[in-house]
Amino acid sequence: MTHGSVAAARLSLRGTDVPIGIYISSTDPTTTEIAAAAGLDFVMIDGEHGPLDRHLVLGHVRAAKAAGIVPIARMLEGSDTQIQALLDVGCAGVVVPKVETAADATRIVRASRYAPTGRRGMCPACHDGGYSVNGFRDRMTQRDRETLVIPIIETRKALDNIAEIAAVDGIDVIHFGPGDLSADMGLDLAIDLPVLRDAWVTVRDVCHAAGKALLVPDNMGFEGGDLYIWPMELMLLRSTLEAMMRDRAAGAQ
Rank of each mutant, 00 (worst) to 15 (best):
residue 104 D to G: 09
residue 60 H to M: 12
residue 240 T to S: 11
residue 70 V to Q: 00
residue 202 T to F: 03
residue 159 L to F: 00
residue 5 S to G: 10
residue 156 R to D: 09
residue 171 I to E: 10
residue 68 G to N: 06
residue 120 R to D: 09
residue 13 L to P: 05
residue 82 Q to F: 11
residue 77 E to H: 03
residue 244 M to Y: 09
residue 38 A to L: 15
residue 9 A to W: 13
residue 208 H to P: 00
residue 33 E to Y: 04
residue 99 V to A: 10
residue 128 D to R: 07
residue 134 N to T: 10
residue 78 G to E: 06
residue 203 V to G: 08
residue 122 M to T: 01
residue 32 T to L: 04
residue 123 C to V: 14
residue 98 K to P: 05
residue 236 L to N: 09
residue 46 D to Y: 07
residue 92 A to C: 14
residue 58 L to C: 05
residue 30 T to L: 06
residue 32 T to D: 01
residue 151 P to L: 01
residue 249 A to Y: 00
residue 172 D to I: 11
residue 85 A to W: 13
residue 168 V to D: 01
residue 140 M to D: 12
residue 113 R to V: 08
residue 142 Q to N: 12
residue 143 R to Y: 12
residue 177 G to C: 12
residue 20 I to A: 09
residue 45 I to G: 08
residue 198 D to Y: 05
residue 71 P to T: 14
residue 213 A to P: 04
residue 192 D to H: 02
residue 37 A to L: 10
residue 246 R to D: 04
residue 141 T to Y: 09
residue 235 M to L: 09
residue 234 L to N: 11
residue 252 A to G: 09
residue 163 A to Q: 05
residue 38 A to E: 15
residue 244 M to K: 00
residue 247 D to C: 04
residue 201 V to S: 01
residue 236 L to E: 09
residue 191 I to C: 05
residue 142 Q to K: 13
residue 65 K to V: 14
residue 102 A to E: 07
residue 173 V to D: 02
residue 246 R to L: 08
residue 20 I to V: 07
residue 172 D to F: 13
residue 54 R to S: 15
residue 163 A to E: 05
residue 99 V to S: 07
residue 157 K to Q: 15
residue 29 P to I: 00
residue 74 R to A: 13
residue 185 M to H: 01
residue 68 G to Q: 07
residue 42 F to Y: 14
residue 252 A to S: 01
residue 107 R to W: 14
residue 213 A to L: 06
